[in-house]
Design a protein around this nucleic acid. Structure first.
Lengths: 206, 206
DNA sequence: CACGGCGTCAACCTTTCGGTTGAGGGCGCA
DNA sequence: TGCGCCCTCAACCGAAAGGTTGACGCCGTG
């Protein structure tokens, strides 16, 4: 039985590389490529496994596309294949229904093995990734409230508490209050560290 | 006349992709691959063009390898091929003697054209990259020094002056001194604003 | 309805940061 | 041999941010 593959990555070179590595396997067939996450959603029907990058230059994020694809009945398995292994990315991908999470520096054999594992309906997490996920479960990520996120975003834009308070029609005391909660939830103790942590976890965008 | 190529990238998939895209060109031959910058330096003899990534998981940076390779007599041309186009990366690559700077999301035709341009001894800068470089030349006033950039990067990672001073073996006074200069050059007045401005201008990456 | 989470704010204190002045050594370039 | 730039550091001060306690109203849920 042949495994039909869809390659979703915005880099032509990476797509060519995946094709070169996977299409030579006798039981794999690359049936389509997508340069955007939107296109991947369109093409996901009729394949068995989707190899999905997370970062696309613009537009939909890979984890969003994964959620859309896996939500459908008779959906293909989605194997996330990305460059980074930040907690937030992994979490988002797994929550979106990804069957696996691989890093792009994985050797070809590992890649092929993961595709077979995913095609068989089992979970294929790279060891390093699985470990990270375990860590995460132990300390559940505190979700920031809308207001906290709003304040944090302005901090990320470089505004002072004074400026934020004016922008949001608040007192400085309130801004500080929100930030204290943000620091606690992110496990940091300064505004710059909060921005760094939130950026790494993709809570805020830049 | 055949152009002999060396592919230097730590991702097997990317190397396979480059090989797939370039080795099919009748006048190109991929004669070697390197998974590390150190290996690229070893293998650079005997090829005409090196396709060089900048980020290698560990060890030598691509721009260092580029500098070493281009410094030798009869050196091959080095074409930098990376994911990001931050000012600092581009500058470093060009200063290291790179003949071109391409982004990995470039279409295959552009890639092949750039290799031919480099092989012919001409400069091959992606339009977006060239534009950035021009910007840089036009306003050299706000150029941050290496040290200032180094400090700013750590600020962006959320470190305090205290932590930065320890990390770089400096006194806090020196860290503050660098930051004061950074603020002046970026036209801001706080560390968070400096990070925001530097990110917007692609002086630092996240 | 009582409870908890959220959003708002005040007062107070400590620590860090921002900004200034001044200064010395190293290095390249005119 | 100067000059200027870069990097380094000290001392000092005011301003901003960090941290704590306590408080009040709103709202949704058990």
């Amino acid at each position: 039985m042949t495994v039909r593959l869809l390659l979703a990555d915005d880099h032509p070179v990476v797509r060519a590389g995946l094709r070169a590595v996977l299409d030579t396997e006798p039981d794999f067939t690359v049936v389509a490529e997508a340069a955007t996450a939107e296109r991947a959603v369109e093409l996901a029907g009729g394949v068995d496994v989707v190899l999905m990058d997370l970062q696309f230059g613009a537009g939909m994020h890979g984890s969003e596309a994964t959620a859309v694809i896996t939500a459908r009945p008779g959906a293909p398995r989605v194997l996330v294949l990305t460059t980074y292994d930040t907690d937030a990315d992994i979490l988002a991908a797994v929550e979106a229904g990804a069957s696996g999470y691989l890093l792009k520096d994985a050797p070809p054999e590992e890649l092929a093995a993961a595709v077979r594992t995913a095609a068989a309906g089992r979970s294929a997490l790279a060891p390093a990734v699985a470990h990270r996920l375990m860590d995460r479960m132990r300390t559940p990520a505190q979700a920031l409230t809308k207001r906290e996120l709003e304040v944090l975003r302005l901090v990320g834009e470089g505004l002072s508490n004074q400026q934020i308070s004016k922008r949001l029609f608040l007192s400085q005391a309130t801004v500080k209050s929100h930030l204290v909660h943000v620091y606690a939830k992110l496990g940091v103790d300064s505004r710059t560290a909060a921005v760094a942590a939130a950026t790494a976890r993709r809570l805020i965008r830049r």
